[in-house]
């Protein structure tokens, strides 16, 4: 059984943007794409731990603000020739409210 935690309304995350959720295990970045899909990744780039929540979001990807590694929002995997992966979390949206399974 998945344990869903309420995060906040979808509108509180900007489109093509992100907000951070703090947890005892570190920050989690909540992303919202231009088509209003919501994803969640551990807020550390696999490269040098850059805060992915601060990157530029396009399609279902985010470019890390430190060295422009491009991370897939769905899997947390680095794209292209770069190799690395960050933890991803299941999310769902119900009645405009984001839930995450930590």
């Amino acid at each position: 059984m998945q344990n869903w935690t309420e995060v906040g309304p979808v509108e509180s995350v900007p489109q093509k943007g992100s907000r951070v959720m703090t947890t005892p295990d570190g920050d989690v970045a909540i992303f919202r794409t231009s088509s209003d899909e919501v994803f969640a990744l551990f807020d550390q780039c696999p490269h040098k731990k850059g805060p992915l929540s601060q990157g530029i979001v396009y399609d279902k990807r985010v470019a890390c603000p430190l060295h422009n590694w491009v991370i897939a929002l769905s899997s947390g995997e680095a794209t292209g020739p770069d190799e690395g992966c960050t933890r991803s979390f299941a999310t769902k949206v119900e009645d405009g409210m984001i839930y995450i399974s930590l």
Binding site: G8, S12, R19
Partner: peptide, 11 residues
């Protein structure tokens, strides 16, 4: 200010 603070704090 909202954009600078976490959307939620857990634990």
């Amino acid at each position: 200010r909202e954009n600078y603070i976490p959307i939620k704090q857990v634990g």
